[in-house]
Design a protein around this nucleic acid. Sequence first.
DNA 1: AGGCTCATGTAACCGGTTACATGATTAT
DNA 2: ATAATCATGTAACCGGTTACATGAGCCT
Lengths: 183, 183
Amino acid sequence: MSLAHGILGFLNYGEMSGYDLAKAFDSSVKFFWHAQNSQIYKTLATLEKDGFVTHRTITQLDRPNKKLYSITLKGKEELNAWLKATDFGFEANKNPFLMKLFFSSGLDVEEVITRLNNFKSEFETFLTVLGGGVAGSITEYSQNISDCSPMYWQMTADFGAMYAKMCIDWAESCINKLQEVTK
Amino acid sequence: MSLAHGILGFLNYGEMSGYDLAKAFDSSVKFFWHAQNSQIYKTLATLEKDGFVTHRTITQLDRPNKKLYSITLKGKEELNAWLKATDFGFEANKNPFLMKLFFSSGLDVEEVITRLNNFKSEFETFLTVLGGGVAGSITEYSQNISDCSPMYWQMTADFGAMYAKMCIDWAESCINKLQEVTK
DNA sequence: AGGCTCATGTAACCGGTTACATGATTAT
DNA sequence: ATAATCATGTAACCGGTTACATGAGCCT
């Protein structure tokens, strides 16, 4: 249960609907924790069943009704236990791109170079997105926050930027090596 | 099906048992694609059912009997199709450490610093493992290989090293920021 | 007219994890 | 003695993905 903790983390800032949560995930943690809306609704249901959240229904005239979820005391305890628990940074990394590269000897070198170029430009795009959308979200949400949350948000964004730059550098060095092979 | 493709990739080098595959995963791709032996055996069964691999049983006197799996023509086609298919580098990243950091405003700053230090030293350990075990595996396996596979293996190892260094740098910069806050 | 935003979900599936189970041989 | 190596799996579970389903209001 890890999306569950993310949801508790967001609800700890205040009431939110499933739709709000989907947007929040999308505009902030998406790049290190993507969540489908279907999964969010499902997880909210189990969180409620387990007593970590409750909801009240808001009837709206011009829009569909919505359910605003809030975190319970039990939920806050769970969130805190999770935050305090030690865990490992280097766990369970699955990188399909590296997996494929590892076995790429059967491909033409040109094909691998193309793949690496695509990889590189993906991260270049990501860097511009991060500089725009995510940075914007952080300043936007920061206005309603009195604690040091924005600092931690910024750290995760910094991680994203450093990771992207590292990937770009790595892809370039790989491309250079492969171009020497073809000579 | 992604472990399946990794298994096909390994079997493309030659016959292997489930046990061999588990060792191969462990000594090479583990850091970007961890695989449990239970999952390997299960996946081998479905791969065989689908006609991508076959096996022959080797009866051994001093050791348990074993099943040596080999890739079929259909399996090679599948492997090749997978290798040629375009995919995305920045997909489906789940980073529990960043997730927790994102919501860490409820923790004492000292606790977060400790967490970051743990994170950092994990990657320092990883760097030494990579310099030892993985580098050793690459040179070891390279002897039986005539194509350019070892170059690609090295590229994935390089990625691991660059990633680890990036993580260490990032963690240090975070720790510095947090130490200024406590002053 | 067409697409986006708001808003909620269900159903089937699947890849992967955790825990369990067995047992001989070999090296320290 | 004890632990590691070799060797194979099963069963239950669970988190997450894909695809599907609905529908009003608003903006261009």
